[in-house]
Amino acid sequence: MASNMNQSAEAALVIDDVVKRFGRGQEIVTAVDHVSFSVKQGEFVSVIGPSGCGKSTLFNIIGGLLGDYEGAVKIGDERISAPHPAVGMVFQEESTFPWRTVIDNVAFPLELQGVAKSERIDRAHHFIDMVGLASFEKAFPSQLSGGMKQRVSIARTLVSQPKILLMDEPFAALDEQTRLLLGDKITQIQQQLNQTTLLITHNLTEAVQLSDRIVVMTYRPGRVKRIVNIDLPRPRTSDVVGSDAFGHYVAEIWNDLREEASRGMADSESAASRRAAHG
């Protein structure tokens, strides 16, 4: 009992032997296959893998949006099968509300909780500041760039102060420079809030730049191939990208990933040629 309590106090999030299959009969696809790992309190963990390896599926399971799966995702002693208030999600696609200003977007979760207007403006203001959009509070998403919209989504998720921040390729649609700078922002925020974070990504430099640990996934079925500890000093900035240690980690993980990524590519090529032959 005591050891059990100890474990759950340390690990904020436990993913225990999770399996998810889609479809039935001949058409069955195993998207996530016996995946296990955990995220400690205050830790930054990335899950990396080629496109189609089941990352978003895993994200949806942890976020409680896909309740029907095998194994267990646990927060404390609770098995997740519906959205949990301790988890804040940032989605892969752009997800701001185009009919709300930046500040009203960010204050949205507080509005749902019935927080008084002046307080929710204050709190939203704080997080908008944190993501560096203070001068855009009254702007509408249509007036912002892609990177700025993604920062709005991040602020909107942070405002309800989730114990666990869960992000699915939040920077996938952005260019490399914006991505590095936003990475700095994320690192700062994470260090400032001691935020427990699970980041889903297919970007190698991003994963190494930000993480304490990286979970490398295989391509179909999505299994854990390896878990790599990233011993780069904190506090970190994007300067770390130039260091030898950084290059070493990138090379090491790329070694693992290359095989998976090329399997993925061969797969989609053969699918495309099948389609071409049929069409």
Binding site: G64, L65, P83, P85, M89, Q92, E93, E94, S160
Partner: peptide, 18 residues
Amino acid sequence: TRPVLINVGRSLKMTPSQ
């Protein structure tokens, strides 16, 4: 309605009327 916006709502545990 874009599915991702509905997912934002679900992740925030919104009621059907919200």
